[in-house]
Design a protein around this nucleic acid. Sequence first.
DNA 1: AGAACTTTGTAAACCCCCTTTCCTAACCCC
DNA 2: GGGGTTAGGAAAGGGGGTTTACAAAGTTCT
Lengths: 417, 417
Amino acid sequence: MSSVKRTSRDIRTANRYEVLRQIIAESPTSRQELAAATGLSLATVATLVGELLDLRLITEVGFEDSAGGRPRGLVAVNATGGALIGVDIAETYVRVELFDLALNVLARADENMRPGESRPEQVVGHVAAAVGSVVTQAGVEGARVLGVGVSVPGQVDREGGVSEYAPNWDWHDVPLLDLLAEHIAYPLYLDNPLRACAVAELWFGAARGRGDAVVVNLGTGVGAGLVLGGGLHRGVSNSAGEWGHTTLVLDGRLCHCGNHGCVETYVGAPGIMLHLRELAPQSTLLHPEDQTATIDALARGVADGDPVALKVVRDTARYLGAGIADLVNLLNPEVVVLSSWVAAALGEPLLTEVREAVARHSLRRPLDAAEIVLSPIPTDPVCLGAATFALEGALSSFSQRPTRRGAPARSRTASAS
Amino acid sequence: MSSVKRTSRDIRTANRYEVLRQIIAESPTSRQELAAATGLSLATVATLVGELLDLRLITEVGFEDSAGGRPRGLVAVNATGGALIGVDIAETYVRVELFDLALNVLARADENMRPGESRPEQVVGHVAAAVGSVVTQAGVEGARVLGVGVSVPGQVDREGGVSEYAPNWDWHDVPLLDLLAEHIAYPLYLDNPLRACAVAELWFGAARGRGDAVVVNLGTGVGAGLVLGGGLHRGVSNSAGEWGHTTLVLDGRLCHCGNHGCVETYVGAPGIMLHLRELAPQSTLLHPEDQTATIDALARGVADGDPVALKVVRDTARYLGAGIADLVNLLNPEVVVLSSWVAAALGEPLLTEVREAVARHSLRRPLDAAEIVLSPIPTDPVCLGAATFALEGALSSFSQRPTRRGAPARSRTASAS
DNA sequence: AGAACTTTGTAAACCCCCTTTCCTAACCCC
DNA sequence: GGGGTTAGGAAAGGGGGTTTACAAAGTTCT
């Protein structure tokens, strides 16, 4: 009996998120606007805004004229009120970004990992160094770091902070958060890049305010973050979204997962490179051993009208479109977001072709309901999403302290009566 | 901004469903057992049971010894307290079943439709006749029919009661519920067979109490009802679950949807027949023009060890397994249920092969979490699911009347004090 | 300048939901 | 027939959201 148990507290949490999201998206803003945008009553918005003010996540920033009446008080994110850190552990590098509370990047650190460096201690060392670096760069006092979100590929036990399985390094049940806690004093939160991207879109991107969305992650690996019913769908063992190993071509290319014809082998960066190599082994676009350079060259090639580049992108879009059409039919989402660095690099040309391919493959009703867009997030979505996990964690840890000490009681009049 | 708005009333509704489900599943039962099974407090269970008693959906049926103390009061479904009707409109027939409140079938009526009969009025006529027939057969007074759930294939607007698109008859925006209302005086509820099967599993079958489940529907058409987060996932335009037109074989068999290689063309009943015909055109198992007979013959063939039948089922299971593995990876469900008449006919042999095929194609973590089972529902799941829609509707329409007249006030002592 | 109107935002009252606690009812055993 | 035990109802309490009343803070009219 693992049926979900919902309590009225969940409603509060969801509303708190929604209000904060709205303030971050549109700062400064008034309580009136927030009420209209969220559909909540003014009173509820006022109390939630009061909470966020108490938490110093937002501040009052003056007033706005209203049509002839009392001016509206404005609130905005308290950018200097704290910092969030997002850690993107990938196969070949570790990227760490430090954000203010408006989710602007204040500092960034990249660490490259050599192919041999696959031991957890080595990875942890890189992460610790990079986190130290961004904190120093940004010059924030440690006390103001509200949390560190860590994204690691593969299967993750987020409650336990364990990397259950990371295919690229063959990790099994590595207690990553415990290892990190020896070097990092801030609250730590763990999940994987798929869900990080999905949460980033949910809070700040194209999935904001949508009930059902699919965030298609195009990088070295491929996956789909699922936003269903307004929240992240994790599945029963937090491994939902493994779309990269969906069979697209029965008995197709061999995938490292052991199967044939997985989506990932066609639309992941290595798959795209392979296609380019098959089409034009001597192409100058091809940078063996460097995925990023190859994809970027491909994007430039498309812009210049290079026929090989055009064909590679078009074929990739066809595979991708067929796969996305299946998602559209199955889940009937409001929006499909193309995210991660391959999508960002190939951009509009890819999007256009994908839209056509999806239209060819999916059924009319779900197709009509589904918008397909590129991620509007300008920075690394994995770091942003990881930082968002930290933000969610900070919010919920705050809200679990009903008896706040230090904060002045806001109404003393009610006590007597 | 179509984000889902949750209120505390939804919690009440979910709990009411949960308690009634439990009572139907295990009748008679005590409040103590219900509290333990649902995780609710005794007080909440007591009030919900009180509501259901007031609604005459359940009755008190005596007492049960408790270890030395006051005996437990037992409640059971009030089977004679009302009737529910489920209507399964399919391509070639209309089946109507009348249920008591314990969801036992009291009466059944089948109407066959000739190939030409595709006009809405004709279908409505069959439904009306069959509904009239089951009411007469069961000898219930009309007043006790709580509602009629209607399942029609294709895209459905359930609020408006409109069949937006039914591929087999090329219906477009047929106001089916309005047409039926002219002949049927009971409350009507509309949806499609996919979701009917899913709801049947959710209430009475293998998905009961599970957070995430996939109900794979194997009939003439193929689809997947999605239970996510403990409730039916409908998608943004109520068309989620169209899994039958997922591409399984790029450039494979032509499907009536216009694409190639859809799941449905391989594992739907016509696809299975086609495979049989390709393998053994002269096979005695083959009954052209009769899907049911062919599938039944196939099932007997497997039982008898017929090599052709074995190969057909094995190949079908392989296609099906590849498709289901994708669902397991994507959604990470707790259970996958094989439902509908093809699954029921082929039974265990199909299940065994499917399990093996899924194990070959899916990733370990989601695979470990997913159980794959045959539907435990012995009767027509579509009729049962349709009747369940009526039950849900009856429950919610009752609960929307806070000022019940007629029902005696249950506590008069509180008024003075 | 003062009165009148407008609009904002807080406080109080209210409704809904669930849980905890208290207490009575109903049974058993000695 | 008292003492122990268990069931279940009633009341209190805590969380959440909304409505209503009212004070606060402007603008506009006279």
